[in-house]
Amino acid sequence: MSGASFATGGATASATYQKVGSIRAERRRVLIGAYIALAVFVVFFLLPPVYMLITSLKSSAEIADLSGNPWIVTRPTLQNYWELLTEGNYLLHFRNSIIVTACVVAITMVISILAAFSLSRMRFWGSGVLATGVFLTYLVPETLLFIPLFQIIGGIGMYNNLWAMVLIYPTLTVPFCTWIMIGYFSSIPKELDEAALIDGANHFQMLWKIFIPVALPGILAATIFAFTVSWAQFLYPMAFLVSSEQMVLTTGIVSDLIRGDTFVWGKIMAGALMAALPPLLVYAFLMDYYIAGLTAGATKG
């Protein structure tokens, strides 16, 4: 009797173990599948930048040699980088990109922080409409309005002038940055401004000493967004800048390194890689803010 019950007990127990084991095995299978999928996509996603690096390390002769495996560098050289940095306008373009981006980021942040503070906290007639308008403006793509802007820029005599970029890039950065700053400012509890008001702060002190420090992560995210957009902008410089010394990186690489049908691929790839470096570095060090900045449009109300 007791033997039988013991046997039953043992059977149940082992059945249970089996069950647990199968769940675990299934989970492992899922995980393996996940890693395979990830690996495939990582290869697909990293292929172009890796190939950029490979090509940039080759000499022109090696690139032109069709007999070898293009995915392998046989005699790596920094020649391409060296030439870019010492001859031609690459450094100038880099400098121009930095100037434009720095100015645009500064202008954008000043405009959007002031506006967001005003729209989220102080309110005035029509401020609700403006907040919605800001969001809609953000959805206006640059290809919609570049032709009238081309005429306007020409009309004020800023055609082929780097500073025109500083003037018009804010259309692309300000609405979105304002929008996410409104989100961040609105999440600051109202009692905090009331406490500051009672403590004796005026509106500028409130903004400077309370709002900006408290919303610093948001400001960082918005700054990164403005930086990314300015750095990557291609259409405006393409349309409004023609001479090489006015150009920024995105257009400069193409216009300077492609002369007719001669493509200096090694240098193009080296130049492209270095142009991608600043956003990549920012991304590497500030990944969370970077993601917050670029996704906030839909995740922040």
């Binding site: 509890p189 009692e191 905090l192 009331e194 406490a195 500051a196 009672i198 309370i210």
Partner: peptide, 10 residues
């Protein structure tokens, strides 16, 4: 001086 329900500490 005022003390708020959520304290409103900076």
């Amino acid at each position: 001086a005022m003390v708020f329900q959520n304290y409103a500490l900076y």
